[in-house]
């Protein structure tokens, strides 16, 4: 498992480097059209081949890495912070506040998988900002539930009771005593969350609900579907990138989970 973890970390680092430097390394622009070279397979000049319009797939995939990683990281960060805050308050304050938040969570969990994100993206319209909103609206729930459960048990522990008895303000108790204790499982969840969010982001882009003016992995892949027979490389390269990145985060998450919760699993 440790080997898989290291593999995961290396892949993630390489993807980040690719997203940062890939577009700079490429001599082409992702919008550069060469109609006479449409659908050409991989060559030295174009290591991942060209699409219908003769655009360089490598360059598009490199820009796509930026787009996918930026959207996913932002959405996971928003979900993470919102989830900790809402879950923390829900678990700590309890009572009617807790009840209301839990009912809201139940309602959002009634939308399986990426249905909520699809629905939101469909009405908000495509675009980077809206995708981030849609993914975060779906994402925070998992963290909130986890943190709430943790807080409920940590609240009863002696050091927290002592802090309450001393009359420390609520935000201080949450910030200094409770939230740090809840972090390890939440960080594990965020690692799996990165995997899930990259999948969700590329699914939305695949369905045409992603950013329209810049290449994203999901969209390059979906554009290639019409040419599977004559130019499978168009779909295969972005597909491999998505799969590698998602797999890398799953490898990391699996190992971390084993570390904080030995023997525990699913």
């Amino acid at each position: 498992m440790r080997k898989l973890f290291i593999t995961g970390v290396v892949i993630v680092l390489l993807m980040i480097l690719f997203a940062v430097f890939g577009p700079l390394l490429s001599p082409y622009s992702p919008y550069e059209i060469h109609l006479d070279q449409g659908l050409r397979g991989p060559s030295l000049a174009h290591p991942m081949g060209q699409d219908k319009l003769g655009r360089d797939i490598f360059t598009m995939v490199a820009y796509g890495a930026r787009v996918s990683l930026t959207i996913s990281t932002t959405a996971v960060a928003i979900s993470f912070i919102a989830g900790i805050l809402i879950g923390g308050i829900s678990g700590y304050v309890g009572g009617i506040v807790d009840e209301l938040i839990m009912r809201l969570i139940d309602i959002l969990l009634a939308f399986p998988g990426i249905l909520l994100a699809i629905a939101l993206a469909a009405f908000l319209g495509p675009g980077m900002k809206n995708i981030i909103i849609a993914l975060s609206a779906m994402g925070w729930v998992g963290y909130a539930r986890l943190v709430r459960g943790q807080v409920l048990s940590i609240r009863e522990r002696e050091f927290v009771q002592a802090a309450i008895a001393e009359g420390l303000p609520l935000w201080r108790i949450l910030y200094i005593h409770i939230i740090p204790e809840t972090l390890p499982p939440v960080i594990v969840q965020a690692t799996f969350g990165m995997a899930g969010t990259i999948l969700a982001e590329s699914s939305l882009s695949f369905l045409g609900l992603g950013p329209q003016d810049i290449p994203s992995w999901g969209r390059i892949l979906s554009d290639g579907i019409d040419f599977l027979r004559e130019a499978p490389h168009i779909s295969i390269f972005p597909g491999i990138m998505i799969m590698l990145t998602v797999m890398a985060f799953n490898f990391i998450g699996d190992w971390l989970q084993e570390k904080i919760q030995p023997g525990g699993g699913e």
């Binding site: 699914s203 695949f206 892949l221 599977l228 779909s235 597909g239 998602v246 797999m247």
Partner: peptide
């Protein structure tokens, strides 16, 4: 089995589908 099942949850269905079709 552990590695294959991690691959299984990582492969997007919109990639697996086209590969199977191909």
């Amino acid at each position: 089995t552990a590695v294959i099942s991690l691959l299984g949850v990582s492969i997007p269905n919109f990639f697996l589908g086209p590969v199977l079709i191909l």
